[in-house]
Amino acid sequence: MMGAVRAENLGKRYRQGEKEVVALEGFTFAFPQGSTAVVGPSGSGKTTLLNLLAGFDLPTEGGVYLGEVALHRLSEDERAEVRLRHMGFVFQQWNLIPTLTAWENVAFPLFLAGLPPRARKERALDLLEKVGVLERAHHLPSRLSGGEQQRVALARALALDPPILFADEPTGNLDAESREQVASLLFHAGQERILVLVTHDLELAARAERILYLKGGRLVRQEVPGPSR
């Protein structure tokens, strides 16, 4: 497969009129198999980093490599194809397609990948069962609780069984119980994948195998948490 996700001297500057904002600078790290949490205060560049790793945006410096592939050198549509085949995403809330039911949301990547309708539905229902929201399969997102929505989003992220999983504040707006459910499902799925979890929730981050600390757009510290899981 693609091996690790490597960021090399990754940097992103935004120009805002006269002044320049350095959102990320000199970030070098190879994300290995297993879960890596990226933490830091608000505005420290976490989302910027994730946007670059996923190819949503292009760096102003350095690059992102998936094995041999230089993601930042690919075109917009080529990056979309890479995301479809190799990456799954769970964002903060509001990331389900509001006009599609739960199972249809899960089936959406399968549809993009060209699977036949029957296979899509089977796989989608299967995944919903795994994340424990099968009984909500035919509900629209607006009828689901925040925790249920995030579990559907996780099922969708896993639809094409991608080797890479990205999550940006996946438990941001959830109550304690839902947070626990989503977190354990996420880390379970991250065990045999490259999971990059961006959060400012230190408790959540502590469950990851590695923690990266960002501050002012720079990687200031890495640590491997103790066996407190």
């Binding site: 996923a54 917009e76 549509d77 995403f89 964002f91 397609i97 959406f108 993009l112």
Partner: peptide, 13 residues
């Protein structure tokens, strides 16, 4: 935002 999500999931332009 919906289009953004679709693109993030791998939909092309």
């Amino acid at each position: 935002r919906e289009f953004g999500v679709m693109r993030a999931l791998g939909a092309k332009r």
